[in-house]
Design a protein around this nucleic acid. Structure first.
Lengths: 110, 110
DNA sequence: TGATTACTTAACCATATGGTTGAACATAAA
DNA sequence: TTTATGTTCAACCATATGGTTAAGTAATCA
């Protein structure tokens, strides 16, 4: 057993599965119960529950009880953190192009 | 065998490992050879090569030969696509807060 | 040429993951 | 109170993943 995975590990891993990304997409529209999340999926309830559990451990969704149902809501913070991480390293290339552009202009001035 | 994973699957999975994220961080500074990528890691070259392979299949890095070395460079496109995906669904909450804000203001007018 | 360097590939291993079924649990409905 | 619904938990299974070592390839060095 690995001692404990980082939040980034959990979030990116959670998003690496198409079933879970579909759940995130649907939850971005409105909160849904586990049954509602299961409805379009050709999968057992237990399987769906495990997927929701992965999203929950990553901090991407929260579950709360409403009668005998569990309502799932998207939690923005971990998604925002993931976006920031990718954003930071996805920017490098345009920065380089900017630098190249600047360098070329300066070169042209000399 | 699963028929073929989507680009999003591959990119998010590639980023879910701390070793590979460290590689991405270092490559955002400058291109590095596989040996240079291996240097800070307590891992065999073969292990490092497999990690680079995962990043390459996800389209995050490209390898090209330079003599007997392989130089790895970060490729922005798949990172940008991942950022866009997360961005899209991470935004939902502020939109809701905006909507709530609007609703409250309208409510106040009545 | 032969030895060394920089890798990749193949085979393998332990553990993680994504799924299943079946039983358990809590709440709601009859 | 009994029964049905919504969900989770535990056990299990096949495959994927992250690592290893050993062997193979290709380029450089002596």
């Amino acid at each position: 057993m690995v001692e404990h995975k980082s939040q980034a590990d959990l979030v990116f891993h959670a998003l690496s599965d198409p079933t879970r990304r579909m759940m995130v997409e649907r939850l971005s529209q409105r909160p849904l119960t586990v049954s509602e999340l299961a409805e379009p999926l050709a999968m057992s309830m237990a399987g769906v529950s495990k997927h929701v559990g992965v999203l929950e451990k990553a901090g991407i969704v929260a579950r709360h009880k409403r009668g005998r149902e569990r309502v799932c809501t998207l939690q923005p913070d971990s998604l925002l953190a993931a976006r920031d991480w990718v954003e930071r390293y996805a920017q490098f290339w345009s920065e380089r192009l900017d630098a190249l552009d600047t360098a070329l202009k300066e070169d042209g001035d000399e």
